[in-house]
């Protein structure tokens, strides 16, 4: 069985935010509510300051605390290891947002980060919380794909609407194979310096497996026991602790 995972090479990431922009377009994200962000961390001070660009999608953990705390099983893990939210079951208690150590979840009905509120400009109809002029054709509430209904939590789906259509047994989804490009997650497909890789973590011959093995892939916040399926490569794959400026 395929276990989808991602590898992000921090030595190659330039912080261009193309991945975030592609994700916004693909998933109709609102400002300030990006499924995928390129954060940056500053650490240490003069004379040895450090600044790291840090792409952060949902980690699609092996042991997702968000799933374990969900009182309705709205958050679930597919057989292929993708963590999704079933909007038909979500009651909007937001406990998953509390329990996610990576801060990658968003509640639909939040105060807008910028004015005018885009949702007011394109008001929703029926079940949809807003109705943008462009939206993907795949509205799939059971897998948390598309425009959110009111009162639910949403998150990165690894572009489930794309990867779930990939041919069975595919080891890697990359731009290299034109036949597979349509199935590549938007952030991976758009990454200009090819800092992102997406493939089957259970397949020893996949590129993601080889990269993790050869370059000692690291997972974030291992002490929480969540075991992310997103691995980081590079000397900077350590997140500094919180500092108050």
């Amino acid at each position: 069985m395929t276990k989808w995972g991602m590898v992000i090479d921090l030595d190659k990431c330039t912080g261009c935010q193309a991945c975030s922009t592609a994700c916004q377009m693909e998933n109709n994200r609102l400002p300030g509510e990006n499924y995928q962000d390129v954060l940056y961390y500053t650490d240490r001070s003069q004379p040895t300051p450090k600044l790291v660009w840090f792409p952060r999608p949902c980690m699609h953990c092996e042991e997702p605390s968000c799933m374990h705390v969900c009182p309705t099983k709205a958050t679930f893990k597919t057989e292929e290891g993708v963590v999704l939210v079933d909007w038909n079951k979500c009651i909007g208690c937001k406990y998953c947002m509390i329990a996610c150590p990576y801060g990658v979840r968003f509640y639909t009905d939040e105060k807008p980060v910028i004015e005018p509120n885009v949702k007011d400009v394109f008001p929703g109809t029926g079940d949809l919380s807003w109705n943008p002029p462009y939206k993907g054709p795949q509205q799939d509430n059971a897998h948390g794909v598309g425009i959110q209904p009111h009162g639910v939590v949403s998150k990165c789906t690894f572009c489930y609407h794309k990867i779930s259509k990939a041919p069975k047994g595919t080891s890697d989804l990359s731009n290299e194979d034109p036949a597979l490009r349509e199935y590549v997650p938007a952030c991976v497909r758009t990454c200009a310096p090819t800092a992102r890789y997406f493939g089957d973590l259970d397949n020893p011959n996949s590129e993601v497996s080889r990269l993790i093995s050869d370059r000692d892939g690291a997972r974030l916040l291992e002490h929480t026991g969540n075991k992310p399926q997103v691995y980081y490569l590079g000397r900077s794959a350590v997140v500094p602790g919180f500092k108050k400026s």
Binding site: M97, I98, G103, R105, Y107, D109, E110, K111, N117, G151
Partner: peptide, 13 residues
């Protein structure tokens, strides 16, 4: 709706 709350994805409850 809940957009009238001052909570956010950063501070949820």
């Amino acid at each position: 709706g809940h957009a009238t709350f001052n909570t956010s994805s950063l501070l949820t409850w």
